[in-house]
Amino acid sequence: MQTSPISRVITIQNEQGLHARPAEMFVRLAKQYESRICLLRNDRRVEATSIIDLLTLGAAQGTQLTLEADGPDAQEAVDALAKLVENGFPQEDAEID
């Protein structure tokens, strides 16, 4: 089935920004999808399946990123990943880290 890429602008909500733990959570979830998933900050595009790549974005609280997915489950991937980010990476802003 022919599909077209899905994209959505998301905003980093959690106070600590997209640091190591959220990046790991994001990658873990992104890897569950077959689609190719990327994150963009302005014109910089990185693979959503690499923790190192996500950390290069240096995305602090309030940063807007564009989430892109291309593949058979693109819509599901964008929905789930956007939810993770918009919910501020549940459990992550606990007392530690």
Binding site: E15, H19, I52, D53, G58, A60, Q61
Partner: peptide, 17 residues
């Protein structure tokens, strides 16, 4: 200072690419 930590991670990861 969460911002400093984030910028350090950003620097480390960018260089290591």
């Amino acid at each position: 200072r969460p911002g400093d930590h984030l910028r350090a991670l950003e620097n480390i990861s960018r260089q290591l690419r």
